[in-house]
Design a protein around this nucleic acid. Structure first.
Length: 480
RNA sequence: CGGGGUGUGGCUCAGCUUGGUAGAGCGCUUGGUUCGGGACCAAGAGGCCGGAGGUUCAAAUCCUCUCACUCCGACCA
């Protein structure tokens, strides 16, 4: 065991020593992504993209089940459109990329590469919507967006990223609010059921909300190093954009009216969350439901008669699962073990001459490291059960980790002290003022991650900053 | 955008102070022996030292500029 640890330290940086380096080491060694020739832009490698596809499919299924259809809008947005909603352009203009030339000719109007698509989508919705009978509009697109970031990190913040953006229109404000909540809830459910990442859900403060939103709701996850990661947002945009873009329809009373609007998004950032919530010093650890390879079979002494035959037979037995046989003869079994642990494969099956004699094989769990013998006739069922068990256990473990890193504080000093001893979420009371929010940021380095829907009595009703009451409970944390 | 760090075979780095024929380990290729936690032996291939200028008989090494990556802050999904 100590030998194993030493070897792993050689392979990747120890996460307790340097979490940031550990994170990029895992991405590189597990072959999830790589740096591209363009600053801030990353290449998502096949293994990383397969994870994204699994995440995407899980969400896309839920979107469709709730009546949404996919569509696709152009990459470029004319400057005039971007400028139509004042808060929105103010929020995004500093970080958009501009296209100024077509071939050698300068364009009469420059186009921005979409940082998000509210504006161009609204411009089209204005054309399409005529009557209340067409509502609601329940559309989504999977695409890339570009935000010219100052500093970037693979998956967490890149100048280009993949995401989905849902854009819906509704007859009434309550319907739009219900949609906003429904999508946030879907975000949370899939994050927990598939990614095994527990989320705190709630509302963003005025300061933190989306540029142009009436209200922004968020799910926040806590990483292994105690920093929070905004993992998905759902916006009730009210009529801000529909008025700015002159989207009007004739309502049931025969009057002209602006519809109510929502938008919501999750991105490849979720992969960063999976890495930083579940990973350990052996590398990545993937929840079975999104793992591109759920089971890896490593034959032992594969040159000996019958070993490979049994390995292939095992793969057939595991038909519906995503199974890989590592039958490369270039590496020793020990090397393969480490390699597939690095890549986060949830379950490893070893089969060698001794096993075949005893009509069994060896299962090794990535989450606990446990090894045990399984009779060959039981492999299919045991593997299925084991993957379910691993999936559940990963959520339980991640929840436990988050809870251990969640503390209550009643003063700024207490916040600083507690975060120093144990970085993570702080539950605290906040009066709702921007002054206190800014002061909190300045003095503690934390931001208000959200005002959770689940309010708790933490033994005080007074703002942690100014002492006023009533106040509401918020989650504070340093954030990515 | 402010502050720090780093750029030399695929990777990690030495060499730079004091200019003088590019090095190591790992990885890779081939052959053989191995195979239950990162195996071993042998023989090979692979780099005009991030880029551009400058100084010099001579630059990985000195000077100027620049680019990239990375960390910490501010800003953001």
């Amino acid at each position: 065991m100590s030998k194993e640890k030493q070897q792993n330290i050689e392979a990747i940086t120890n996460m307790e020593e340097d979490f940031a380096k550990w994170y990029t080491d895992v991405i590189m060694k597990a072959e999830l992504a790589d740096y591209s020739p363009i600053k801030g832009f990353m290449v998502i490698r096949p293994y990383g993209f397969a994870i994204w596809e699994n995440i995407k499919n899980a969400y896309d299924k839920r979107f469709k089940e709730t009546g949404h259809e996919n569509m696709y809008f152009p990459l470029l947005i004319p400057e005039s459109l971007l400028k139509k909603e004042a808060e929105h352009v103010e929020g995004f203009a500093p970080e958009v990329a501009w296209v100024t030339h077509g071939g050698d000719n300068e364009l009469t109007e420059r186009y921005c590469v979409r940082p998000t698509s509210e504006t161009i989508i609204c411009s089209m919705y204005a054309k399409w919507l005529h009557t209340w009978r067409q509502l609601p509009f329940l559309y989504n697109q999977w695409c890339n967006v570009v935000r010219w970031e100052k500093t970037t990190r693979p998956f967490l913040r890149t100048s280009e990223f993949l995401w989905q953006e849902g854009h819906t229109l509704h007859e009434t404000e309550p319907e739009a609010q219900a949609e906003t909540m429904q999508m946030l809830e879907i975000y949370r459910q899939v994050a927990e059921e598939y990614l095994a990442v527990p989320m705190v859900v709630g509302q963003k403060s005025e300061k933190e909300k989306f540029a142009g939103a009436h209200a922004t709701y968020t799910m926040e996850a806590l990483m292994h190093d105690g920093q929070a990661l905004q993992s998905g947002t759902s916006h009730n945009l009210g009529q801000h954009f529909t008025k700015a873009f002159d989207i009007m329809y004739t309502n049931r009373q025969g009057e002209r009216e602006h519809p109510y609007h929502t938008s919501w998004g999750i991105s490849t950032r979720l992969i960063g969350a999976v890495i930083m919530v579940h990973g350990d010093n052996s590398g990545l650890m993937l929840p079975p439901k999104i793992a591109p390879i759920q089971v890896v079979i490593v034959p032992i002494a594969q040159h000996k008669e019958g070993v490979l035959d049994h390995a292939y037979a095992l793969k057939d037995t595991l038909g519906e699962l995503r199974v890989k046989i590592d039958d490369s003869d270039a590496y020793s079994p020990g090397w393969k073990f480490s390699q597939w642990e690095m890549k986060g494969v949830p379950l490893r099956i070893e089969i060698g001459p001794k096993d075949i004699q005893n009509e069994k094989c060896v299962f090794v769990r990535r989450d606990t490291g446990e090894k045990f013998d399984v009779l060959l006739k039981d492999v299919a069922q045991t593997a299925r059960e084991m993957l379910e068990e691993i999936q559940k256990n990963m959520l339980v473990r991640a929840t436990k980790m988050r809870d251990e890193k969640t503390q209550v504080a009643h003063s700024i000093d207490e916040t600083i002290e507690k975060l120093k001893a144990n970085p993570g979420f702080i539950k605290a009371m906040w009066c709702g003022s921007r002054e206190c929010e800014d002061k909190l940021k300045e003095l503690t380095g934390t931001s208000i991650r959200c005002i959770p829907f689940e309010q708790e009595n933490i033994g005080s009703d007074q703002c942690i900053c100014c002492g006023q009451s009533p106040s509401q409970m918020v989650y504070l944390a340093r954030a990515y």
